[in-house]
């Protein structure tokens, strides 16, 4: 009759099993585990784009700015300071914007609440020429008086022109893909101040482009 052996713990069983395996076997094992686990969540298939659609006339309630796209238009001359006759073309998204934040939203952050997708020939006005077209921000103009929109104060709705500039020769768009962005209020890692950071897409939609800018102030 032999001496009774102490039951081994599951950890010990795994350790003994793994200890005499080659690196190749271990790598293969890890790959198979990853494959099985990822398979439970859809495998390597292209993830479905879950970005909500953007509809003209319907507000997108993003933090910190609520955005209602009204229309899109092109023009060779917006007739306001800084947007006179151009050899290229202005592409304008007209939108009503509003914040219910307790403090004004700085102009620098407002530039990041809207982007255009897949529009060719956007001129990098005021930004580095190396910047990708989809990362070029608009310049913002108050529709009511044609002055540049600076900080956005709480509780007021501004009809705003989001203006991009197309280079000469770029094809005139019949519709454009507009994206709206939200941001997060957090402490800066650099200077410890609280600011809006990390723009992320909240809605995306195609907006037909008209030949004339018709939307007046609200």
């Amino acid at each position: 009759m032999g001496t009774p052996t102490t039951p081994r713990t599951p950890l010990a069983v795994v350790r003994d099993h793994v200890a005499d395996r080659s690196i190749r076997d271990l790598g293969l094992g890890l790959f198979l585990v990853a494959l099985v686990v990822s398979g439970l969540f859809g495998g390597w298939a292209q993830a479905r784009d879950a970005t909500p659609g953007l509809t003209v006339g319907e507000p997108v309630g993003t933090a910190p700015v609520e955005i209602t796209v009204v229309e899109a238009a092109t023009s060779m001359d917006l007739g306001v300071w800084g947007f006179g006759p151009t050899d290229g073309r202005y592409v304008v998204v007209v939108a009503d914007i509003r914040t219910e934040n307790d403090t004004s939203i700085p102009a620098l952050q407002l530039r990041d609440i809207m982007r255009l997708r897949d529009l060719s020939g956007i001129a990098p006005v005021g930004v580095s020429p190396d910047r990708a077209p989809e990362d070029i921000p608009a310049r913002l103009v108050v529709a009511a008086d044609g002055t540049p929109l600076q900080d956005l104060g709480p509780g007021m709705t501004y009809r705003t022109w989001f203006v991009w500039q197309q280079q000469p020769g770029a094809p005139e768009p019949e519709q454009i893909t507009v994206e709206t962005y939200s941001m997060t209020w957090r402490r800066s890692n650099v200077d410890d101040t609280m600011r809006w950071f990390d723009p992320s897409v909240t809605a995306r939609g195609d907006v037909p482009v008209t030949m004339t800018l018709t939307a007046a102030a609200p």
Binding site: T103, S104, A107, V142, P148, Q150, D151, G153
Partner: peptide, 9 residues
């Protein structure tokens, strides 16, 4: 009402 407005425009 507790809201703060920067000089902005």
């Amino acid at each position: 009402d507790g809201r703060t407005y920067s000089r902005g425009r």
